[in-house]
Design a binder for these strands. Structure first.
Length: 423
RNA sequence: GGAGUGGUGGCCGAGAGGCUGAAGGCGGCGGUUUGCUAAACCGUUAUAGGGUUGAAAAGCCCUAUCGAGGGUUCGAAUCCCUCCCACUCCGCCA
């Protein structure tokens, strides 16, 4: 959500942000409508407040007269009339304000200046680590997974549906190992506070981080209006919703494991086979609350933490900066970490590290007080995966695959798995 | 699930239709005093929105806000309704 002042003081910046996302055509009219609504609304508000002031004064007059034993019926009549006028104006105002709010919720964040213009094709690889393995002789993860008896997709489909995983034996244990490994890395080596949070959240939380109202069809909802989280970003970022933090609390770093639920409506077929795109998966999430001055440096730091996980797992990866048009709705700048999976011959996104500037903080009303007696300001929020499990498992099964179909376990993971080989 | 009690500023806590944006305390900030610290004393200290003056910092005026939303009333923190949350007791339960 943007500051309404942006509409009045720097509408050009807002417009330019939408242009860089390639959305000016659809969102330009939204901006214009919002700007006009905001103007109308303020004019009306001035009228309403004037009448309210008059009514308040008259009410005082009633109190004074009654106290003095005088008759107040004429003032009461006038006040009642004012009240009716206010109610009528207020009704119009509420309508305008509701529409303005709807429009505000439709506008995505403004990309930072160093984000490339354009769509997906303009994403740029910034750096890479490790040597992608040749496709030759490497079998896709669903084949080795089934063969090793650690993955049972047909039965996942039977008990839940397509896109639901059943892990067995070493596979199930691998999930547990990754969970402990990722959390230890974040908490012990990178200084994150380890958290455990609900998997079901309310509507307000989903709105706070930007999943709602625009992307409601992507989420699973319960019959009593709880949402299954698509990422632990939602509970972790909403943790301090409607609060004012102390400057000394920042930067604050939180990590949590959670299961994540995504409907992925319409995403079937290509690039979704095996574990690549599923409805329920595991992820360790990293969230940081930072000051505006610090947020660019903090994004680099956060990204380095996610990268560290891939290095320890000895998986080749590359870091991409997403172009404006490919950057998520709430994000101002995103680095995607892609791991190479030689079996399927593709780079797979395993972490998306973003700064949301004050976009989420404004929606969720998360502020901090820079110093004693100073006015609260919005924090900046950042998050990234560290990491998403299924695609990491894809890469592990394919990159570390041996000729006999067994899989070597990277050094760092062995203590957690209690084995040096899968299969 | 049933019955009850409660939700007030950064925190604690009074207020029970009008002069209450809200007593008092704690905390914060500024000051006096002081060898330093502490104590004491004095002052000050909510948030959001709108208008206005100003280059700005800021000032002034108005409006709203006492869990949320609705209602009654000339007027609601205070009365009524719905919802949310916390606590107590009962029931159920891994």
């Amino acid at each position: 959500m943007h500051d309404l002042k942006l509409l009045r003081e720097n509408i050009a910046a807002l417009r330019d942000g939408m242009r860089r996302r390639g959305k000016l055509e659809t969102l330009g009219p939204v901006i214009d409508r919002a700007e006009a609504l905001d103007r109308e609304r303020r004019a009306l508000l001035a009228q309403i407040e004037e009448k309210q002031a008059a009514r308040n004064a008259a009410s005082q007059d009633v109190a004074r007269r009654k106290k003095g034993g005088e008759d107040a019926s004429d003032v009461i009549a006038r006040t009642r009339a004012l009240g009716d006028e206010i109610a009528a104006l207020q009704h119009t105002y509420d309508g305008q304000f509701a529409e303005l709010e709807r429009l505000q919720y439709e506008l995505p964040n403004i990309p930072l200046g160093d984000v490339p213009e354009g769509g997906e094709e303009a994403n740029r690889v910034l750096r890479s680590w490790g040597e992608p393995r040749s496709h030759d002789g490497v079998r896709p993860h669903w084949e080795v997974g089934e063969q090793l008896g650690i993955l049972d997709l047909p039965r996942g489909a039977k008990i839940a549906g397509s896109g639901f995983i059943v892990f067995r034996r070493g596979g199930a244990r691998l999930v547990r190992a990754l969970l402990a490994f990722f959390l230890d890395l974040a908490a012990r080596e990178h200084g994150y506070e380890e958290m455990w949070v609900p998997t079901l959240v309310n509507r307000r939380s989903m709105t706070g981080t930007g999943q709602l109202p625009k992307f409601e069809e992507d989420a699973y909802v319960t019959s009593d209006d709880f949402f299954l989280i698509p990422t632990a970003e939602v509970p972790l970022t909403n943790l301090y919703r409607d609060e004012v933090l102390d400057a000394g609390d920042l930067p604050m770093a939180l990590t949590a494991y959670s299961q994540c639920f995504r409907r992925e409506a319409g995403a079937h077929g290509k690039d979704t086979r095996g574990l690549i795109r599923v409805h329920q998966f595991d992820k360790v999430e990293l969230v940081r609350y930072v000051t505006p001055e610090d947020s660019n440096a903090q994004l680099e730091l956060l990204t380095s933490h996610a990268e560290a996980a891939l290095r320890k797992l000895e998986l080749p990866y590359r870091v991409k900066i997403l172009a404006a048009g490919d950057t998520g709705f709430s994000s101002a700048k995103t680095y995607d970490l892609e791991v190479f999976a030689p079996g399927v011959g593709a780079w797979l996104e395993v972490s998306s590290c973003s700064t949301f500037t004050d976009f989420q903080a404004r929606r969720a009303n998360i502020r901090y007080r820079p110093g004693p007696g100073e006015k609260p300001r919005f924090v900046h929020t950042l998050n990234g995966s560290g990491l998403a499990f299924p695609r990491t498992i894809v890469a592990l099964l394919e990159h570390h695959q041996r000729a006999d179909g067994t899989v070597a376990v990277p050094e760092a993971l062995r203590p957690y798995l209690g084995a040096d080989t899968l299969g």
